[in-house]
């Protein structure tokens, strides 16, 4: 497939069947390989869309500086697009993220400001908002509330899924900014009113939930509960187990958040099989495992991997 530039090649990812993990020919699992994007994650779609929208709105000029709270993938994607388009990027990232993410960010020319580990991404959001007040000339695209994030999935991920799998019954994705689920979910619902849109959210160690009070909790502005039909919380043990199973049985080397999503997808598949319902369940492979090799998720026993992930933002 030929494209005029790297940015033109964002999206158009393969959807591959999982014959070994699917319970039967009537209940099938399909993986959308978002790791095939230019920086290796689903976030390239949102990053490109948010920057393009900001350009159209006249917010960006040559040499402009972007500011973004991110646990990694969005930052990396923004860094790549920003570099192509001539902008600088400052990322606010929790300090309990894997070192590969920081290396990649710097490689694409981004500057990193670390936020405290306790409180996870909530803290990164809070710190970024504070910096934004000190630097009103910087442009914060703000993935959690930027409609272009969800719209990217409404216009690309959703249509790609429906074109490749017209018989889709379930769509399962991770819940972070909620952009993927909101955008692709709305598109699929319009085309197929009965489609099930299911969220899998990572359940981290206690450090990440170390808020000072409950009012510091965070729900992304993009989140609309009515788009979803179900929402599961998946802990590191199940996420790692499924990440390894995906590699072992289907040859797909994915990041740990994909394991969490697969865990929810497999539960749905098992339920459909038990009830004798046919199902075509598509889920998102958010990224490859490369950035998480240092976390310890791919070696040793599940207990060791779980212990190694304690306190880390693994998704």
């Amino acid at each position: 497939m030929r494209f005029d530039s790297l940015l033109d090649s964002v999206g158009h990812t393969p959807l591959v069947g999982l014959p070994a993990l699917s319970p039967s020919p009537d209940v099938r699992l399909w993986a959308k390989l978002e790791d095939r994007n230019p920086t290796g994650s689903v976030k390239d779609r949102a990053a490109l869309a948010m920057i393009t929208k900001a350009e159209k709105d006249g917010l960006l000029h040559p040499g402009s500086t972007l500011l973004e709270p991110t646990s990694g993938n969005t930052g990396i994607a923004l860094a790549m697009v920003a570099k192509q388009r001539g902008y600088k990027l400052v990322c606010v990232m929790p300090e309990n993220t894997s070192p590969e993410r920081a290396q990649l960010l710097r490689m694409w020319g981004a500057e990193i400001i670390y936020s405290p580990a306790a409180g996870g991404s909530n803290e990164a959001v809070r710190v970024a908002k504070e910096i934004s007040r000190q630097h009103p000339e910087w442009v914060m695209l703000y993935q959690y509330g930027n409609e272009a994030n969800a719209l990217a999935h409404y216009e690309t991920t959703g249509p790609e899924l429906l074109a490749d799998l017209p018989t889709i019954t379930h769509f399962v994705a991770g819940l972070g900014t909620t952009g993927t689920l909101m955008g692709a979910g709305r598109y699929l619902r319009e085309a197929k009113p009965d489609v099930q849109i299911v969220a899998a959210e990572p359940r981290y160690g206690e450090l990440v939930y170390g808020l000072r009070n409950l009012d510091e909790g965070f729900v992304p502005e993009l989140y609309d509960e009515s788009v979803l039909t179900g929402r599961y919380s998946v802990g590191p043990r199940d996420a790692v187990r499924r990440t390894r199973e995906l590699l072992d049985k289907e040859g797909i080397f994915a990041g740990i958040s994909t394991g969490a999503i697969l865990h929810a997808a497999i539960s749905i598949a098992a339920k459909a099989e038990k009830e004798g319902q046919a199902a075509d369940i598509a889920f998102i492979v958010c990224d490859g495992g490369w950035k998480y090799l240092s976390t310890g998720a791919y070696e040793g026993t599940l207990e060791e991997a779980e212990a190694a992930l304690e306190g880390q933002l693994w998704a």
């Binding site: 646990s71 991404s121 959690y144 972070g176 900014t177 939930y209 909790g217 998704a315």
Partner: peptide
């Protein structure tokens, strides 16, 4: 039953 505060991802 698990109770958790809402936190951000991404």
């Amino acid at each position: 039953v698990t109770i958790l505060p809402a936190v951000a991802g991404g």
